[in-house]
Design a protein around this nucleic acid. Structure first.
Lengths: 343, 343
DNA sequence: ACACTAAACGCAAACGTGTGAGTTAATTAG
DNA sequence: CTAATTAACTCACACGTTTGCGTTTAGTGT
């Protein structure tokens, strides 16, 4: 292995000072053209790359952002992540990723480990446990330490920072309204994420849409639970199409969507003639299902891109306190496929 | 915002030297018990955390590993990634992630950007374009610069480094043999990843299994292409169950698996009575399909864990050149579900 | 011939930490 | 009572860069 090229090495071999080398490489006008060329060529020959850590130490910025995600196997988060990574790279930033597996403890630990100069800011979506326990001290501490945070999707209204969200409430209103307009009267609501902020907002949107359309809310058509396991346990007892005269289903997450569709098909009902379905979903599932599922698409990559832009803009803002915190809303799209009727 | 606590700050406020503070915090026996306590308590009060960048500069290690993945939306890579992240964190390492989107250029650029002290080593799976063009210079350069690499899944036999792979060849032999043993005589091979090393190995395993079982290879039963798009284009013309008397399908990737199953069902054939299917697949798809798909499971998280262990072991090995490079093989598992008959 | 100027470069400090080699002062042995 | 030992702490340098300022040298004008 060749010894790592450093300014000092190069300086010695060329019989010049370290600062001359540094300035020559950064094209400073202080250095004469001949020496510039000499140094630059020699540096190239030796494959010199400025040691990033030393540069970071000088500049007090790492050009690295910390991304904290509950679960990378969830295709929504994977999509957001790819958006973050893309924008961050375009703007010259690296991305350190941590997966909390929905654990508050890991979330705190991670933020603690990275809040020592390793990263310049965070982009995160709050873990399930954190949302349940309403713990926000670790976020406030980071912000107090001048480490900016951008939250996406699962946010906390109690933390003052930049946020990127989907208009969950409006999306739900829109989707359910579509079901009503196309003839549904008894629309079931199935949620396996009722403990999440987004789950609650979507459920409220469902209620609002029914109210707006003068449909009485029937609690027996609503299943709201907090996990896939609980969902799988209670769904079979809940989902009685014939008995409850269900003619539409609004599902708040992919797992609920798929489970509901399979149950409908198994019951021998026709989609979308007998029953219509709309679900929140970000994976490839919805397209591949037979019939394909109409979904509320959340534009994951755009969310990630917006979050990265927001964070980096703030990091590179020279002014004292930076701009006001803003909440950017990414519009969803109702992707009409085979599980719904046309208007 | 409180000024960032540093050794210097603390030293000044306590009227001791910087080194005293440093040693007190690291519990050096050189420092008396009273001052240790005084310093440690004060540091805690001020929420002091050693600046990671400075520590890295001193130690010449960043305790960070670079992970380069072709596509995080592919559930296989997402699983491997979660395994890497888990083990890395357990062993005190951070993970910087880059997504190449199968681009050679991005792969080279990424490795270049990170090979300056930012990371101590790489874990990567080679992009499609890189495999196609057999470009390996950037890997060799990193290794020459003393930055170890661990490759997983899509590897290059021409690069001398640690590797973690699935026994693709044997897995394919095993899967196809299972189809034969359970009565299949005309087994179709469908691949949308023929340009990848793993695709080739799996295809060879298919051929070997037929040969071992004295079944003549029928080229008309084999479809090997290089992308999802090409696959979707050629598959309909290729897949003629009745005309070709196909009674089994071996699919080399999730997309091919799902497409084949949908075609079989659409053709009105019964699974597994008329046709059996086995596919490589890592997503949730296989379980959720109706009928559920029998798969060759690749144990993604274990692959990631093994790769991280291998890399970190090498990074922390003090000896001159480290241990011999090894290739670790993670066993696959044939998950028998509803698309195959029992033996 | 002398002062002045500008070009080209070197010096040294700084970022924050860690560490071996001094430097004190107090204790102990002879 | 002096010399050796030890405890407790400080100094100074190093890691690799960057950068303002000081220094040298040569060139210019008068």
């Amino acid at each position: 292995m060749r010894p790592k090229a450093t300014l000092k090495q190069i300086a010695k071999e060329l019989n010049v000072s370290v600062s001359t080398v540094s300035k020559a490489l950064s094209n400073s006008p202080e250095i004469s053209e001949p020496t510039k060329i000499k140094v630059q060529e020699f540096a190239k020959l030796k494959n010199y790359k400025p040691n990033n850590i030393a540069v970071n130490l000088k500049s007090k910025r790492s050009k690295t952002i910390g991304v904290i995600i509950p679960n990378i196997l969830n295709p929504f988060f994977a999509k957001v992540f790819s958006g973050i990574e893309k924008t961050a790279n375009e703007r010259g930033y690296n991305v350190i990723t941590c997966i909390t597996n929905e654990s508050l403890k890991k979330e705190i630990h991670t933020m603690d480990m990275l809040s020592n100069g390793t990263i310049d800011g965070f982009i995160l979506s709050i873990s399930q446990e954190t949302q349940k326990e309403h713990e926000i001290k670790h976020f406030k501490e980071a912000i107090a330490d001048d480490i900016p945070i951008v939250m996406f999707d699962r946010i906390s209204t109690d933390v003052n920072c930049d946020k990127v969200i989907v208009d969950d409430f409006d999306s739900a209103v829109h989707a359910v309204t579509h079901l009503v307009k196309t003839g549904c009267k008894r629309i079931a609501l199935v949620s396996n994420i009722d403990n999440l902020s987004v789950g609650e907002l979507r459920a409220e949107g469902y209620l609002k849409a029914l109210e707006d359309n003068n449909i009485k809310i029937d609690e027996s058509l609503i299943l709201r639970v907090n996990s896939d396991e609980e969902f799988d346990e209670k769904f079979p007892g809940f989902f009685d199409v014939k008995g409850k005269k269900i003619d539409g289903v609004f599902a708040l997450e992919e797992h609920a969507s798929v489970t509901a569709m399979k149950a409908v098909l198994k019951g021998g009902f026709k989609i979308p003639e007998d029953i219509q379905l709309i679900g929140f979903a970000d994976g490839v599932w919805s397209r591949r299902l037979t019939p394909s599922l109409s979904t509320v698409s959340q534009h994951g990559p755009e969310i990630g891109e917006a979050a990265a832009e927001l964070l980096i803009d703030r990091l590179e803002d020279k002014s004292e306190d930076g701009p006001e915190y803003q909440t950017r809303i990414i519009k969803t799209e109702l992707r009409q496929r085979e599980s719904t009727r046309k208007l």
